[in-house]
Structure formats: C-alpha cells, structure tokens
Design a protein around this nucleic acid. Structure first.
Lengths: 210, 210
DNA sequence: CTGCCCATCCCCCGAACGTGGGATGTTCAC
DNA sequence: GTGAACATCCCACGTTCGGGGGATGGGCAG
C-alpha cells in the first residue's frame, strides 16, 4: 500500500523537482502538487493524502497557516515542512501548527523520501540545525543564583498573583493586606530577581521553572 | 583532531560494547568509560571530553542529574543520552538538564557513532519515537481563536520586545517609530488577546504563542 | 541580647502605562 | 474601487508603577 503524498510549493521548478523525487520512490504515490496554500486547501480533502510536503514561504497564506487549516480537515495528515529559513520563530510556529518534521531545502534532494518514510512511521525528521534549536528550547538557561536571593514564600505568593495579571490593588485585596505592603514586596522581588519591571519579573519566573 | 568521548553506563557488557563502537571510529577518541555518575563526575573534568554518552538509568545518581552536574563543570560538553525507556517525562527532564541528543538503546549499535558526529556538528540526533514526542510537545491543542484575532506580524514583533522587558519608549527607539504608534500597537495586542495589561499579554504569549 | 530577615504599614514623586479619541497612507481582497 | 486590515502618527486624561524614604513587630541565630 503506497502512501499518498501532496506537495505545496510555489516555485514551479522546485515543485517539480520534489514531485520527481516522490514519483521515483515506489513506496510513495503523488496525489497532487500545488502552487499555493489556497489551492492545496481546496483540492486536498478529496485526495485524502497521508503525507504533505509543505513549503513554509508561500505567497498569500503562509505554509504555517496552511498546515493549521489542513490539519483541521485532515487530522491524521502528517506534514513535513520545507524551508530556506532557519530562524527559530518559523520553526516553532510551524511545530505548533502541527508539523511533524522540518527540513531545510538544501537537504531536500537527498533526504526527502527517507524523511517522508520516517514521518509516516512515527518519527520526526529534522535537519541537524533545526533539531538542535528544538532541543535547545528545553535547555534551562539560568541557574537560580544564590539561595539568599530567592524570593521568600510570601514574595513568591505575590509573584504568582502578578503572573495571573492582577494589579497591586487587587493583590492587596485578595491577600487582605495594604497596597503599600504589596508594593514593598514587589520591590523586594525585583531586587532579588535583578529586574526593574513587572514584565521582566514575570518572564523570569515563568522561564525558570516557576 | 579526534573528539574526546566519555561513556557513562552501569552495565559492564553494554559499556564495553559502546566503548568498542567508539574505538572503531577513527574520528573519535575514547577518554574514559565509567560505571556510575559519581565516577564520571570525579574523573571527567581532568579529561576535558568533547562528547559524552550517558545512560539515563544509573544506580544512585541518575544520568539526568549527572548531565546537569557535568554541564556545570564542562559547559561546552555535548551529551548524547541513551535509554531503554521512552517515557516522555525522562525525555523532557533530560533535555532540560542539557542533553543534546537522545537515542533508545536498540538504535545504539547502529547509530551511535553517527549520532556522536551529528551532535558534534550542531545537530541533535534523536531516535524516531523520541523525536516525535519532542515535536508533539509543541503541537497546539487549542485554536488561537479566530485568525482575525491573531496579532499581525508587526504586533507580534512588538509583543516579543515586551517579553524582553523593554518599556514603550525603548521599543519606539529600537523600531524607529513613534511612542504613540507603539502604544497603539500594544493596545491592539491587548484587544486581540483579550487582556488588559502588559503582564497578562506576556503570560498569554509565553504560555501559548511564543 | 543583638542583629538580621521577614512581613507589615505609610508617604511622596515622577515616569510609565491604559484608554479614549482622531488621522493618514498602503495593500490587498472582493 | 470600495472597504477592510494594517502600520503609522498625534493628543489628553486619569491610573498605576517603580524608586526613594522611614517605621513597627516577630522570629531565629549567633
């Protein structure tokens, strides 16, 4: 049983190169090759593809948005993203949209069909540089400094209310203490976290395992 | 120039198999093979290894804890985790501790040396099932509301600067636009995210958008 | 006992922020 | 070509914040 594949890529030459690669692989069956996200969204549901090769940089609707919408109609579709860019913003937005693998274009000629199989069999092929960025997402950046600089329990409590988006007055009411007291605690928090604004404090708290 | 490798694996037979694999690769140089995390921590700093092969399941101190401590002493060390388990808790804890790649043991014989090279050259090799779990971590469950309510590219750009803790004036300077323009963008962001303060916007962005 | 840290309260001030309004030009879809 | 969405700019108002200052009492360690 061959796996049905669609291709979405605006550059015609590249699209045909990709199509040729898919055609030469006997385990794959090319169901369609589209030049735009809109076309892919219109045609794909009837084709019931198993796999999609998706360029990230498309005119009008981006490949990322296209993935998101395709997955709504075809939840079991597996998507391999192709990109020339390696900037992390695109990577993570694509992954969030539901991409199952992520190749840079210069790897495509060599690895496309293998990557498609890997995707189909439960893997998540990524070009080396992409994989590293994904893994690095998890690396904890900062050590929590010295123990004496960690917020006291009361301060941590207030920090959590700040994260919830409460303003000082609301925190004061909720804890049954004075506004000025809250202000003092918050200032102490800033000093301990070495920040100078609520936003920085909240970001730091969320990032290091709060 | 060969890359120095250490191995940490409690099972002697497995350890020697791994050591043999490393020795047969002419681009690698085996500096040490240890049966416990404690031994590795004691001996490694003097060896200045470039790469480490780390079993995740060790007696006493776990491989995850060992990675964390090794990285404190050798921040540039690159670590390839080995495991029999594929449960996601271990995966993510290992990644947070600083692992750069993650193989299941049954892949080791075949892929160990290739994976070590990939790690050394900026990649993050993962067994298929592991990679899939990592990628799936990012998959969004919830719809970010309607498309029209998603921040525009410009707004997202400003949102990211807010996350960095910049104040409006600094954002204006950095982007070369007026303070009031920034204020307008920020207000639009609030409306789209259904929040009423910078803190709420930043939290929402970090938790489900960025 | 004498510090030291914590939690609490209070005041002042200038800067930054959130909200409301209006305005112009571009681009792109219908 | 009309309109919607976007990016840009401007103003005014009241509120909130952040950074100073100082003060009290409790608890715990040296």
């Amino acid at each position: 049983m061959k796996a049905g594949v669609i291709i979405v890529e605006d550059n015609r030459a590249v699209r045909e190169d990709l199509a040729a690669l898919v055609r030469t692989d006997e385990r794959l069956s090319l169901l369609g090759a589209f030049g735009s996200a809109e076309e892919a969204l219109r045609e794909s549901p009837g084709l019931q593809p198993t796999l999609a090769v998706m360029d990230i940089n498309l005119p009008k609707m981006s490949g990322i948005e296209c993935v998101f919408r395709l997955k709504e109609r075809l939840p079991r579709l597996l998507v391999l993203m192709l990109t020339v860019y390696e900037d992390d913003d695109s990577i993570f937005r694509a992954l969030k949209a539901g991409a199952n693998g992520y190749l840079v274009k210069r790897d495509a000629a060599e690895k496309l069909t293998d990557a498609l199989h890997e995707v189909q069999h439960g893997g998540a092929p990524m070009s080396a540089h992409i994989a590293r960025q994904v893994v690095q997402f998890f690396h904890r950046s900062e050590r929590p400094a010295t123990l004496s600089e960690q917020p006291s329990p009361r301060e941590r409590e207030i920090l959590e209310l700040l994260v919830k988006g409460l303003v000082l007055k609301e925190i004061a009411e909720q804890l049954g203490i004075g506004l000025e007291t809250v202000r003092t605690h918050v200032n102490h928090i800033y000093q301990k976290l070495h920040v100078r604004s609520r936003t920085e404090a909240v970001v730091k708290y969320l990032r290091q395992g709060g």
